[in-house]
């Protein structure tokens, strides 16, 4: 299940309404897939590893908070608005504020071996599958 906390985009009534709506859906939907939430992610996976990528331009990589429990990867962070003195905004489209998103992966993750790289505003997180989830070969003994 994907979820997210309120995002500090320039607010509007509808935006707030959607947040409430999403929270309600979350309460009632249980594990059903919910709306995609910020930030958008891509996941690549093979049998042993999953790679989660997300675009977080202009963010300080040190401020991204990542945690892994079981199958769930949680991302949290914040981007502050541009600080300008005596300026007038002609356009203000870029997002700012806090975000949080939990991503459920197809397998349990070996939390100690998770690695992350931040390059050109894109975050790449490599999540290896936990050993306990890997198939084990069982030898059949003959009597």
């Amino acid at each position: 299940m994907l979820w997210s906390e309120g995002l500090g985009r320039p607010g509007s009534f509808w935006r707030d309404w959607e947040t409430i709506e999403n929270q309600m859906n979350r309460l009632f939907a249980g594990a059903a897939p919910s709306a995609r939430e910020f930030p958008a992610i891509n996941i690549w996976a093979d049998g042993d590893t999953a790679v989660v990528t997300t675009e977080l331009p202009g963010i300080d990589p040190g401020s991204i908070d990542m945690s892994v429990v079981g199958k769930t990867l949680t991302l949290r962070g914040e981007r502050r608005p541009e600080e300008v003195e005596n300026g007038t905004y002609h356009r203000r489209e870029r997002w700012y504020g806090k975000f949080g998103k939990a991503i459920e992966l197809p397998f349990d993750v070996d939390a100690d071996k998770v690695s992350a790289r931040f390059s050109k505003g894109v975050l790449y997180i490599t999540l290896p599958k936990a050993e306990t989830e890997k198939p084990r070969k069982i030898n059949v003994k003959t009597e």
């Binding site: 675009e55 977080l56 541009e82 300008v84 300026g87 007038t88 905004y89 002609h90 870029r94 505003g121």
Partner: peptide
């Protein structure tokens, strides 16, 4: 974001990658 100040105009664009 486009911000106009007294002496300049600042354009900030998100272009990840």
């Amino acid at each position: 974001d486009i911000i106009e100040r007294r002496d300049d105009i600042l354009v900030v664009a998100d272009m990840p990658g």
